[in-house]
């Protein structure tokens, strides 16, 4: 559920909005939720807590006129479901069937109205913006929104070395030496017939395979990192559904790398792929071996 530039006809409590004065609605952070994750009998459980500072909304929740709801969505599997907190608890344990989910899940926290109500006025509303106007709300209307979470469910290990996020193909009609695309789950490197033949021939030798791999993989990874760095919101939404993005974003987070404040993407690429770093640091040795053993390029 992506909602941008929505003009609400009623006050909404959210970050950056001035509809409420001195109020706050937040939930557990990404790390806390991720660490709460358990997997039992084919089900995932996640524990999430919320904090609400707004007497008016708190009272509506206790009076069952409003509910705190977590909206879960997995775009990969078209899973979507709303879970409600009990009115007297700020903690909720979510239980989700593992086979309904993809590699990650997006969680959006809301407070929604549980009733149709005329004259929705709270002391915390910004009087400058709303004055004494009569405001009506309907059951289901959003009253507050907190920052969402993007939780990786670890169906695979995103921190493990994952050369499998790359795939090398051949295209016999390709005019260029090679092309790179990342529209599917893997970063796809397509070689023309000549290069693929060469690749196959030399890759029989494991120690040379590392160099060959790095020759194609590192530039491809730099392209992909550049695409992430320059992505607009729609591109990012699309990337989030891809396995390569889940793996790369997780590795970036683990390495505490912020692409927006990074100058050299090649340097980042080499940090992300330990195998490539190893290959690059050993390249003199391996090239010497390559020349002396085979006597040819």
């Amino acid at each position: 559920m992506r909602r941008t530039n929505v003009s609400f006809p009623h006050p909404i409590l959210k970050e950056g909005s001035e509809d409420y004065i001195d109020c706050k609605f937040t939930i557990s952070d990404q790390e806390e939720v991720f660490n709460s994750k358990k997997e039992i009998n084919g089900k995932f459980t996640l524990t999430i807590e919320y904090e609400l500072i707004c007497f008016g909304l708190e009272k509506m929740i206790l009076d069952k006129e409003a509910k705190v709801v977590l909206y879960l969505e997995s775009k990969m599997t078209n899973y979507r479901k709303a879970f409600s907190f009990d009115s007297e608890s700020t903690k909720l344990e979510l239980e989700i069937n593992k086979n309904e989910l993809g590699d990650y899940i997006d969680i959006k926290p809301f407070i929604v109205s549980n009733v149709d109500k005329d004259g929705f006025i709270l002391n915390e509303h910004n009087k400058v913006l709303f004055g004494s106007s009569t405001i009506s709300i309907r059951k289901g209307d959003f009253l507050a929104e907190a920052n969402g979470l993007h939780i990786i469910l670890n169906k695979f290990d995103p921190l493990a070395d994952k050369p499998s996020i790359f795939k090398i193909h051949v295209d016999y009609d390709l005019k260029e030496d090679y092309t790179v695309s990342w529209e599917y789950d893997h970063i796809s490197i397509t070689l023309n017939e000549r290069l693929h033949g060469l690749y196959n021939k030399i890759s029989q030798e494991p120690s040379y395979r590392i160099v060959l791999s790095s020759l194609f993989v590192t530039p491809a990874l730099v392209d992909v990192l550049s695409a992430i760095k320059n992505a607009n919101e729609d591109d990012l939404e699309s990337y989030k559904t891809k396995k390569w993005y889940v793996v790369l974003s997780s590795r970036l987070k683990h390495l505490k790398i912020d692409l927006n404040s990074t100058y050299s993407l090649s340097e980042v690429a080499n940090k992300i792929l330990p195998i490539v770093s190893t290959a690059v640091s050993n390249i003199d040795y391996i090239i010497n071996e390559l020349y002396s053993d085979k006597g040819e390029k």
């Binding site: 929505v6 006809p9 509910k67 909206y71 709303a82 059951k139 289901g140 959003f142």
Partner: peptide, 9 residues
């Protein structure tokens, strides 16, 4: 659905 949670109904 832009201002209300249809899934809640």
């Amino acid at each position: 659905g832009a201002v209300s949670m249809l899934d809640f109904l």
